[in-house]
């Protein structure tokens, strides 16, 4: 298997606090990879390092053998890395459609001149990308709400739009930060199906999720973080049997 992302010895420091301490793992192309750990373990910090919002103090991140540790966040998007946020970070005054169209920002070209006069090339580009966005809308079942401003949607719908915006980018690597948080069983099942479909379409998925049942069922590989340290890495079965992971999640035997 080809390694799409290689994380080597990443440390992230905020003043005296070590949010991440020498974390290393790798993600294979086309797999579903999960990042788990108790609250505050550094999972979201890790994603922030991958998507470029944080810059680690040590270590290196390689995407398809290209060094991206120091690359700006917006340039990483050009490489095909998309991200859905945990605390929904949609543009709430804009419609669902505009949010998804923003997902296609890097794939479009029109600038302030062609866009301002619109007709011709810019219009064609808008329509072409709209067609692509409509596929995402269909995939996520957002047809009825496509013109609704995001702020008026229910939480579960917003969560789906958040994932949709990342998908609109036609990414090769998608980072999903707790896409199922706050969902009921039916909604979770639906999201799990979507994630499997993404995998079928050849997208590599990085998943942060607290529902271990879902994680064990979906993932090909798992990395476990605890207090910024990596305490486990491997297939679901290997991780489940790892004594350190059991210790972090359940605690030690007192007797």
């Amino acid at each position: 298997m080809v390694k799409i992302l290689q994380i080597e010895g990443i440390s992230l420091q905020f003043g005296g606090v070590k949010a991440l301490n020498d974390v290393s793992f790798h993600i294979e192309e086309g797999e579903i990879f999960s990042l788990i750990g108790p609250n505050g373990a550094g999972k979201t910090s890790m994603l922030n390092c991958i998507s470029g919002l944080y810059h680690p103090s040590q270590g290196s991140i390689k995407y398809k053998d290209e060094e991206i540790t120091k690359m700006k966040a917006y340039s990483r998007t050009n490489l095909g890395i998309a991200r859905a946020f945990q605390n929904i970070a949609l543009f709430e005054h804009m419609s669902v459609l505009d949010n998804l169209m923003l997902g296609r920002h890097t794939l479009m070209k029109s600038g302030p001149f062609s866009g301002g006069f619109y007709f011709g090339k810019a219009e064609k580009e808008e329509v072409d990308n709209r067609e692509h966005v409509e596929q995402v809308i269909e995939f996520l079942d957002l047809q009825e709400i496509r013109h609704t401003p995001v702020e008026r949607l229910a939480y579960g719908q917003q969560k789906r739009v958040e994932v949709g915006r990342a998908l609109a980018l036609s990414p090769e690597l998608i980072l999903l930060d707790e896409p199922m948080a706050g969902m009921n069983k039916v909604e979770k099942e639906r999201m799990a199906q979507l994630i499997l479909k993404m995998k079928d379409n050849g997208i590599t998925v990085v998943l942060i999720e607290h529902d271990l049942g879902v994680v064990m069922r979906l993932s090909d590989h798992i990395a476990v973080l605890d207090f910024g340290k990596q305490i486990g890495f491997g297939t679901p079965n290997e991780v489940q049997e790892n004594p350190e992971v059991i210790k972090a999640y359940i605690g030690e035997n007192v007797s």
Binding site: F91, M94, H105, G111, G115
Partner: peptide, 13 residues
């Protein structure tokens, strides 16, 4: 037109 095209959406974002 600017508002409804790519640049305008980026401004809103």
């Amino acid at each position: 037109n600017l508002v409804r095209s790519r640049t305008g959406r980026a401004f809103f974002a």
